[in-house]
Design a binder for these strands. Structure first.
Lengths: 172, 172
DNA sequence: TCTAGCATGTAAACAGTTACATGATTGC
DNA sequence: GCAATCATGTAACTGTTTACATGCTAGA
């Protein structure tokens, strides 16, 4: 269960409330590990119950600020070094490719063209984001840039693939 | 819910039993849309209840062979042409990158080197698979090849990224 | 005869999504 | 005063995984 560790990771160095974390998920982690409000609040309660985080401050409107405990940090490190990342992924986009044979060649090409366009747009957005951020050389910047670079390479790869794939579909 | 449509897609042209479909998931669809035995049998029952497939033949050992109905084929086409693929993905590998700052630079480089090695191995396997298959020019081959090409490009991209990323991690 | 593989089904637990529900505070 | 945003929580549902449970059949 990576959600638990994503929360621990976000709490390193700066305490935050559920609401703060929700925003972090919706921005920086949106394309890596999306999570809903429901999930986040529930998981924070469990993490606090297990002593991996503590409520360090209570603010207005029932705000609860959580801080990572030593146990929590140790667990984060254990997860990073002692466990293998899960690699089971599902791709709806690719699944559909397997079944394009039931459509006309024109429809199949349209589908692939749509995917190429989508990837191109994503690539442009990520490139713009990269340019807009003022990267320095602290940890957050180094690893944030590495992750963003992944996104850009991935989007470029998808675009090139979809454009190539389109040329492979011949009329029956 | 794509599992439903994956089953419909696999039943195009050739009737199959739950057991046959399970094997198809474990081989060709393993990296695209993994599914368990439990899920498959349950979903087949629902699809039959809804008239998208029918039990066309009963064999030994309680074997039930399912055939796609016209309604089922129509639904598959509707899914392909009228609905947008879901693009919410989760990447445990990438999530960990965000938090490599809590490790030593050496540990972070080790992690990235491990990912590079893993991607390289996957790439080699997919390349070998590609070479081993006797592709002809029917629909299955065309779209199967396109999907496999995606896998190869993706694995190559991941390897190159991880190797590059490793060089970005400097000692603090 | 016995083993491997064929063949299906169900129950419980876990993860994730959607929807509902409520209320406080800040700034205009 | 009102709207936007801050802030949390719960319930119901869907999808996925793991484990249990059972039995038949073909071939060595």
């Amino acid at each position: 269960m990576s959600l638990r560790h994503a929360l621990l990771g976000l709490l390193v160095d700066h305490p935050a409330s559920g609401y703060d974390l929700l925003k972090a998920f919706d921005t920086s982690l949106a394309n890596v590990w999306p999570a809903t409000q429901s999930q986040i609040y529930g998981e924070l309660t469990k993490l606090a119950d297990n002593g991996l985080i503590v409520v360090s401050e209570q603010g207005p409107r029932g705000r609860k600020e959580y801080t990572l405990t030593d146990t929590g940090l140790a667990e984060l490190r254990r997860w990073l070094t002692q466990t293998e990342p899960q690699r089971t992924t599902r791709s709806d986009v690719l699944l559909r490719v397997f079944f394009l044979g039931v459509l006309t060649p024109q429809q199949a090409r349209d589908y692939l063209a749509g995917q190429a366009a989508h990837a191109a747009e994503l690539h442009a957005n990520l490139k713009a984001l990269d340019a807009a951020i003022d990267w320095d050389d602290d940890n957050l910047s180094v690893y944030g840039r590495i992750a963003l670079e992944y996104g850009q390479r991935f989007a470029a790869m998808q675009q090139e693939w979809a454009e190539w794939a389109r040329t492979q579909v011949r009329n029956a």
